[in-house]
Design a protein around this nucleic acid. Structure first.
Length: 213
DNA sequence: GTTCGGATTATCT
DNA sequence: GATAATCCGAACC
């Protein structure tokens, strides 16, 4: 096992965590075996003030995991599928990063068994497919991602030199379309959504520059 | 109890 | 790209 991301990693602003999750390794171990992939697409959901965030309507039994500690898994069902989020902590508000796609790295045969006969590229392209490929079910809701058991995220070599982070509006949400809170590796074949997003709806992400001393 | 809409996806055109 | 399938949680009665 590699280096499991600790609670401190998640205990930061959700956008910061979302961007840094790109390139990390999402690992799932079940009785069936181990499967893992490199995170290539994420979305940030920004607590109560973000109308697209489940927590914006307050705490309910369904979204309670989002109100948990940073590093908690928030798994919720939608349209007969599951979506996987990692809870973060922006100024004490319930927020989370939705992991939308991974590039399969380990346990591809297990993923294929779970997903059926689909193109390699579609094994874990999209939040629902990703959960199916990794065997992430509702039983993982509220799972502690920092324990290194069952489901966790590992440090990874990370970004390749040729890779650039782009952002766009979040997919599938009708509200807050002016917010560019989806982050992905431009050109990566395992990223979901239209293969060529309209240029107007995507921009290169600029890392905040530190002041020159 | 019923209704309604969604952080989706497969399957069309 | 458009649509239908499908089902759960939330909101309302």
């Amino acid at each position: 096992m590699g280096h499991v991301l600790p609670p401190a990693f998640y205990d930061r602003n959700v956008v910061e965590v979302a961007i840094e999750l790109l390139g990390k390794l999402l690992v799932s171990r079940t009785r069936e075996g181990l499967a893992a992939g490199r995170i290539v697409e994420v979305e940030a959901y920004l607590s109560r003030r973000d109308k697209a965030c489940h927590a914006s309507r307050g705490r309910t039994p369904g979204n309670a995991a989002m109100f948990g500690d940073p590093g908690t898994a928030y798994v919720y069902p939608i349209h007969s599928r599951c979506c996987f989020n990692a809870v973060t902590q922006p100024e004490g508000e319930p927020s989370a990063v939705l992991v939308r796609a991974i590039e399969p790295c380990r346990g591809e045969s297990l993923m294929k068994r779970r997903r059926g006969a689909v193109p390699e590229m579609d094994l874990a392209r999209g939040p629902g497919r990703l959960c199916e490929a990794l065997g992430i079910g509702r039983d993982r809701n509220k799972h502690n991602l920092t324990s290194g058991r069952g489901l966790w995220i590992e440090q990874n070599p990370g970004m390749r030199l040729s890779e650039a982070i782009y952002c766009s509006p979040r997919i599938g949400v009708t509200r807050a379309q002016d917010r560019y809170l989806r982050f992905f590796l431009l050109g990566n074949r395992y990223v979901s959504g239209p293969r060529r997003p309209p240029r107007k709806r995507r921009v290169k992400y600029q890392f905040p520059t530190r002041g020159v001393e």
